[in-house]
């Protein structure tokens, strides 16, 4: 069966997504930094689903390696899912260029560079899909995390353009905005239960929506309404708010 390539495969969301696709009969390429840490997880999937799981080393910020990375895949993936994300530390990124660079390169430039390569292959094959996981933080910049948010906003714009560009070739691009998710990245934060999804929920919703070729989804629909309100607050008011 077809392969799905998951980049940023060590995140909790990526793992749930990997299990979901394997459950539906897909084989997997799991790519991440220090990918050897994924061996036990790969075994988990093959015991559960009896699918083929291949582990690949990928540093999303090592731009030069991306061509080779994609070349080495013997069977090219039907779908590529990016779950790469780095929250970083806002206050640090305001003064420290390396932190700023790391946030932007991880959340945007690196992903865009790799997806450029994937997209051109899919365009030629006129077949396949790309899913990018962005964030509600990209819908509007807030003082708490606007550097992360702006990188995610850039990824959002990139995906929307890519969707437009690949449409003619029959290649589908989907944008996913998870909202709060109970993961390692958010461990210790006091998240409101009704707004918080489990990684497994994200995976289920993502899989279904991708199969139906949805364009842009929020995992919990309540987030669509929340962000609609957040987006319409006038700037003169928004700048005074503490949210």
């Amino acid at each position: 069966m077809s392969y799905i390539l998951i980049i940023g495969a060590k995140s909790d969301i990526a793992k749930a997504v990997a299990r979901e696709y394997a459950k539906h009969g897909y084989d997997l390429y799991l790519a991440a930094r220090n990918a050897h840490e994924l061996h036990k997880f790969a075994r988990d999937i093959s015991v559960r689903s009896q699918r083929i799981v291949k582990i690949l080393e990928l540093d999303i910020r090592d731009f030069k390696s991306h061509h080779f990375f994609y070349e080495q895949l013997e069977e090219k993936p039907l779908g590529t899912i990016s779950a790469v994300g780095y929250l970083g530390t806002q206050y640090k990124a305001q003064t420290n260029f390396h932190e700023l660079q790391r946030i932007v390169e991880t959340n945007f430039t690196g992903i865009a560079n790799l997806l450029n390569i994937v997209a051109s292959d899919l365009e030629q094959r006129r077949h396949g899909f790309i899913v990018g996981i962005t964030s509600v933080a990209g819908d509007r910049g807030r003082k708490k995390n606007y550097i992360y948010g702006s990188a995610k906003a850039a990824l959002g714009a990139y995906l929307s353009g890519l969707r437009n560009s690949l449409h003619g070739a029959g290649v589908h691009v989907m944008t996913v905005k998870p909202g709060f998710v109970a993961t390692k990245m958010t461990a210790g934060m006091d998240l409101p239960e009704r707004l918080t999804a489990q990684p497994e929920d994200v995976a289920k919703v993502l899989f279904k929506a991708q199969q139906k070729k949805k364009n842009e989804i929020y995992v919990k629909s309540v987030w669509r309404w929340i962000m609609m309100i957040v987006k319409v607050i006038p700037e003169w008011k928004f700048k005074k708010m503490d949210i």
Binding site: D12, K40, F41, R43, D44, V47, R48
Partner: peptide, 9 residues
């Protein structure tokens, strides 16, 4: 609960 790998069968 998050410690949930299948190991072998």
């Amino acid at each position: 609960k998050p410690y949930n790998y299948f190991i072998d069968f």
